[in-house]
């Protein structure tokens, strides 16, 4: 699971108010390099919840080898330089959570991640 996908995921278990952002309890994280695409990142930026990206990055930080380039804690206003965009691209597209859990912030429901695929299946009584 990419951190980009994590940025869009919410929990919709019964009893959640917001269900966002999901906490990541990572056990295994890998980096799969892919070529930087500036248009892609700038296209995504308006929809991105930047705080959630920072939060997710902190949660997986100690499992990521090698360490990704720093991205600013707050999204700078106006024009963003290419180096920042590149770092952001790396964080969003290249960091994959392979094993671990996603935890709903409201109910504490855990969604397991196995082989990079989060299991978001709910039982009929959880809806």
């Amino acid at each position: 699971m990419r951190l980009l996908t994590h940025n869009y995921l919410i929990s919709n278990v019964k009893g959640t108010k917001e269900g966002y952002p999901l906490q990541i309890e990572a056990e295994e994280v890998v980096i799969e390099d892919s070529p930087f695409d500036q248009e892609l990142v700038t296209g995504i930026l308006p929809k991105l919840n930047y705080e959630a990206v920072i939060g997710a990055l902190h949660q997986v930080a100690d499992k990521v080898e090698p360490k990704p380039a720093d991205i600013p804690e707050k999204l700078p206003e106006g024009e963003i330089d290419t180096a920042t965009l590149e770092a952001l691209y790396h964080v969003l597209f290249n960091i994959h959570v392979i094993e671990g859990h996603l935890v709903c912030p409201d109910t504490g429901r855990k969604f397991p991640i196995k082989q990079g695929i989060p299991n978001m299946i709910l039982h009929e009584d959880e809806i």
Binding site: M1, R2, L4, T5, Y8, L9, I10, S11, N12, G19, Y20, E32, S34, P35, K47, N49, G116, I117, P118, N119, M120, I121, L122, E124, E126, I127
Partner: peptide, 22 residues
């Protein structure tokens, strides 16, 4: 050369776990 996809194990009948307007 590289896949741009991400996968999710989910049952569509129980709703879709994404933020609005994604």
């Amino acid at each position: 050369p590289l896949s741009t996809g991400d996968l999710l194990h989910h049952d569509m009948g129980t709703g879709l776990p994404f933020r609005p307007a994604t």
